[in-house]
Write a protein that binds this DNA or RNA. Structure first.
Length: 937
RNA sequence: GCGGACGUGGCGGAACCGGUAGACGCCAGGGACUUAAAAUCCCUUGAUCUUUGAUCGUGCGGGUUCGAGUCCCGCCGUCCGCACCA
């Protein structure tokens, strides 16, 4: 072997094999050492590892390796989130089996991960698509069912009539299925739900204890749960004015939809069944509203209900105008931009509602387009003075705007500056509430409502129960059986796992489980009569809601070993992308609490610390081609096929202004039009020179675009395999840790990876200078060494890898500049240990090749982390900044620990200080020992 | 609209608790070595000026302080999340 250069191509594989042979990353359940569970979010086996994975797993690996060296028993596992739609799409497009496709991807990606030298305990590998995993998931699902946390109900879903499947909201684009392009229908299907709302409060309050989670994630989850407290109040209809639509000419519109709201979001701690009757009653005697501002109740000037509200439906039964208005509401868009500009519209039903605190006041009842059926009671009291939406509505329809909250009593009749005032203040024009602060008034109104029986304190959540049914093949079969006699019957645990049949076909759209000739036919476990299996499968987010438990223990006969979980859980450090801030992390928290609730585990929160890493970004390369269009092409430019092909119109006004320009002068009679086509080029098609980019094929300069997340459509992706082949695993790992703080985006660059590669070689040369027999002491280098260890250790613990990297560069620079000595050899050995978690292959190679191990046998992966001598951390000399009036004028290097008087004297003795003082009298001198002296003149 | 994060050289970014702004890396420039190139090594590198030194400089405007990138008040901008949530 030559020691001239480090050769990753051979070394990487050699040490990966050595680690495997020594089993040095297998976590010992029975170890007496302190434990650490380091976990990165497991990947979906899409086919190839991408650079984001590399960043994620490098961070976790550095942490895991460092912790091992520091004497921890580390659990650092890896697995596969292996169920999901891409496998089925591949099946449909390429005619391969989802299972075969997934397993092939797992195999390929496992090789890629191993090639990067990650210190995973592969003996604990999990694939969620294997029956030994999803079978235990079915068992847990049954346990949750037994614990009352699983229920079934009819619910509206997005149904793609072409693909014959349910689509998630994110998969519906402009009302069409993302794959088929078919108009999506709303369908009512019986679906399985998990009662996450029962834990809404717990999940919210639990966030306070998650101090080692990013504030951002905690905030996002809190917003998602969306707790708001207020009053649910009934505004009854006047006596003697029964609702005309009840049983009236309008065809007896009973309010069947009255139940829809409650069905969509069952209230915490109450079953869906009790809610519907409650809701039905509500439609009769009055209108139930929810408000977070009961203090403003005397400012109410109308009541508004949603278009889907039973009262609106009832009115529509008698009034074509009302029906037309409801239809209008439904046609409105729901995108942010549309909502921003949509005018508040209402339809006066002619109905009146009585103010609960003063029967002499009656309020008009409107159907309004801004009231949502899905939230609260689907009806609001309109208080224009203190709610912006109500304000706009009242302004449009000439309704009264009564101020009931003001800065002070003196402002009781202050006019409004064109908008509602939603802030704090004191109540005015509010009778018994006058003078109370908002918070006091809220309590007073609620108390009154409860004592008089027209309302109750109410907490509303934005969070809905978690619908887990998917009409898909490639997922965990929901372990239930439908029997005509016995109803819905759980599969007995002894019959688990309910295994997915392999012999399915994807030639026709829809769920293959539904069409399978035999699979779904079973005997009812209760009565033994012919019955059918549930053919829905579980949302894949269920799979990832408990996989961390399975990593800690994998008994074959139950989901986990409770005692083993006590040893390893919660996960000490979880690392993954911010894109999972809500769904995955909320579901995993819920699942953990649910398991604790039903008594299966002993902790409430799964992840003690969470770290969300930034994305890897890359600049884009844009080739602009101009051409003069003929009319047929121009018309195509407007079409979706063109605009979706990464094309933008820019530059010339006639093209960028689009429709308007075209209307009166379609093709720019007075000037020639050129359209700029923008086409993205991939980094491999580019050569860079002096900060400019050129297309290799043509030599033409191309525009360097924004640095953005790597994506196929922008072609700004780099393939980890190519980088490993060229530079080795350590260089790419080093790049992932360098420069950018790990929570921020990391811009990938060719120059950057080359720099990393050079540093790998530079370290190799430096390690080659190790001389076990060198003598002599180098005190400053000793100090530098210990300071570097102390700092880097802290930086790694804080996941500030970029800072640890800077410390390592710094130490390497210092060693290179130093003369041979025993200190230098110790420093080289220390440096090697410090970089070993980051560049493990180089470290092992040098450890062995240059005999740096110094008597320690075995791998550097098993060596001890370098110790720090606290005495060496203390400098004996310090550089003192000398300021005059806060401006730096001089620095002096003195022995540490000089007294204030000595420092003051030294500062005043400085020529530079005297020159800056220019004869002015010194008023006072501020001395910060061992830091600075500031002379104030 | 609500919530959150951020704003420092050509670039990525350092800077403990208010105490020498720009560590470390990249890019760039100059030099050494070489027949040459690569590789490597050394030096320079915030701006300006009258350059042994001075002035300015952490998005903008104020303030507190002996001293502010850091604290306070008011703006501007960028990014992210949520959104007619009553």
């Amino acid at each position: 072997m030559t020691t001239e250069r480090f050769d990753p191509a051979t070394s990487d594989l050699r040490w990966q094999a050595a680690w495997y042979a020594a089993q040095c990353f297998a976590a010992d359940d029975n170890s007496a050492k302190p434990r650490s569970f380091v976990l990165e979010m497991f990947p979906y086996p899409s086919g190839r590892i991408h650079i984001g994975h590399v960043r994620n797993y490098t961070m976790g690996d550095v942490l895991a390796r460092t912790k091992r060296m520091q004497g921890f028993e580390v659990l650092h596992p890896m697995g596969w989130d292996a169920f999901g739609m891409p496998a089925e799409n591949a099946a449909m497009e390429k005619g391969v089996h989802p299972g075969g496709w997934t397993r092939a991807n797992i195999k390929a990606m496992t090789e890629q991960l191993k090639r990067l030298g990650f210190s995973f305990d592969w003996s604990r590998e999990i694939s969620t698509c294997k029956p030994d995993y999803y079978g235990q998931e079915q068992a847990l699902f049954l346990d949750l069912y037994a614990g009352g946390l699983v229920y079934r109900k009819e619910s509206a879903v997005n149904w793609d009539p072409v693909d014959m499947t349910v689509l998630a909201n994110e998969q519906v684009i402009d009302g069409r299925g993302w794959r088929s392009g078919a108009l999506v229908e709303k369908r009512k299907l019986n679906q399985w739900f998990l009662k996450i709302t029962q834990f809404a409060d717990e999940l919210l309050e639990g966030l306070d204890g998650l101090e080692n989670w990013p504030e951002k994630v905690r905030t996002m989850q809190a917003n998602w749960i969306g707790k708001s407290q207020g009053l649910k109040a009934t505004f009854r209809f006047p006596a003697g004015s029964p609702l005309s639509f009840r049983g009236g000419a309008g065809g007896g519109v009973s309010p069947p939809d009255a139940t829809s709201r409650e069905e969509d979001r069952p209230h915490p701690n109450s079953s869906p069944e009790t809610q519907s009757s409650e809701a039905q009653r509500e439609g009769l005697s009055g209108i139930e509203v929810f408000t977070t501002r009961p203090d403003t109740i005397f400012g109410a000037s109308f009541v508004a209900v949603a278009a889907e509200h039973p009262i609106a439906q009832g009115v529509a039964g008698n009034s074509p105008d009302a029906q037309a208005f409801i239809d209008l509401c439904r046609s409105g868009g729901t995108t942010a931009a549309e909502l921003e500009t949509t005018e508040k519209l209402g339809f006066d039903t002619g109905l009146k509602a009585v103010h609960p605190l003063d029967p002499s006041i009656t309020l008009p009842v409107y159907i309004a387009n801004f009231v949502l059926m899905e939230y609260g009671t689907g009806a609001v009291m309109g208080v224009p003075a203190h709610d912006q939406r109500d304000f706009e509505f009242a302004t449009k329809y000439g309704l009264e705007i009564t101020r009931v909250v003001a800065a002070s009593a003196a402002d009781a009749d202050k006019p409004f500056a064109g908008e509602a005032e939603s802030g704090d203040g004191v109540c005015v024009n509010s009778r018994f509430l006058d003078g109370l602060r908002v918070a006091e008034a809220k309590a007073a109104v609620i108390a009154r409502a409860e004592s008089e029986g027209w309302g109750t304190a109410e907490t509303q959540y934005r969070l809905r129960d978690w619908g887990v049914s998917r009409q898909r093949y490639w997922g965990t079969p929901i372990p239930f059986i439908h029997c005509e006699i016995c109803g819905v019957v759980p599969v007995p645990k002894k019959d688990l796992p309910v295994v997915l049949p392999e012999d399915v076909d994807f030639k026709t759209p829809g769920n293959p489980l539904l069409r399978h000739p035999t699979w779904k036919h079973v005997a009812c476990p209760q009565c033994g009569k012919p019955a059918t299996r549930e053919t829905d499968t579980l949302d894949t987010f269920v799979d990832s809601s408990w996989y961390f438990l399975r990593f800690a223990s994998q008994p074959s006969d139950r989901p986990f070993d409770r005692e083993m979980l006590k040893k390893w859980l919660p996960v000490e450090q979880y690392i993954g992308g911010i894109e999972h801030a809500i769904l995955h992390l909320l579901y995993a928290r819920f699942w953990t609490r649910a398991l604790q609730h039903i008594g299966l585990i002993d902790f409430a929160e799964p992840f003690a610390s969470l770290f969300t890493q930034g994305m890897v970004t890359h600049e884009t390369y844009i080739k602009e081609t101009s051409f003069s269009p003929d009319p047929t092409v121009l018309s195509e430019v407007e079409g979706p096929s063109f605009s979706s092909a990464a094309l933008k119109e820019k530059g010339s006004p006639s093209t960028s202004s689009g429709q308007t320009g075209r209307g009166d002068d379609p093709f720019g009679v007075g000037e020639s039009i050129s359209i700029k086509l923008e086409q993205y080029l991939s980094p491999s098609e580019i050569r860079k020179e002096d900060g400019k980019a050129f297309e290799i094929a043509t030599g033409e300069e191309v525009k360097i675009g924004r640095v953005i997340k790597m994506s196929k459509s922008k072609k700004n992706v780099v393939d980890p395999d190519n980088i490993i082949a060229t530079h080795g695993a350590d260089a790419i790992r080093w790049f992932m840790l360098s420069d950018s703080p790990p929570e921020r985006d990391l811009p990938w660059s060719e120059a950057g990876i080359e720099g990393c590669s050079r540093f790998v070689q530079r370290l190799w040369r430096l390690f080659g200078q190790y001389d076990a027999n060198a003598t002599g002491e180098d005190k400053p280098l000793d100090r530098k060494r210990d300071q570097s260890v102390a700092a880097a250790t802290g930086d790694i613990a804080a996941l500030s890898f970029n800072k640890a990297v800077a410390r390592i560069y710094d130490l390497a620079n210092a060693i290179e500049k130093s003369a041979p000595s025993a200190s230098r050899s110790v420093a080289i050995r220390t440096l090697l240990l410090l970089v070993s978690p980051m560049m493990p292959h180089l470290a092992e190679e040098a450890w062995a090749a240059f005999d740096i191990s110094g008597g320690e046998t075995g791998l550097i992966a098993q060596a001890a982390w370098p110790p720090v001598d606290p005495a060496l951390l203390i400098e004996d000399e310090v550089t003192i900044a000398i300021q005059v009036l806060g401006k730096l004028r001089d620095t002096i290097t003195v022995a540490k620990g000089l007294s204030k008087e000595e420092l003051e004297a030294l500062a005043l003795a400085s020529d530079k200080v005297q020159r800056a003082l220019d004869g002015k009298a010194v008023k006072k001198v501020i001395v910060v020992p061992d830091r600075l002296v500031n002379v104030v003149a």
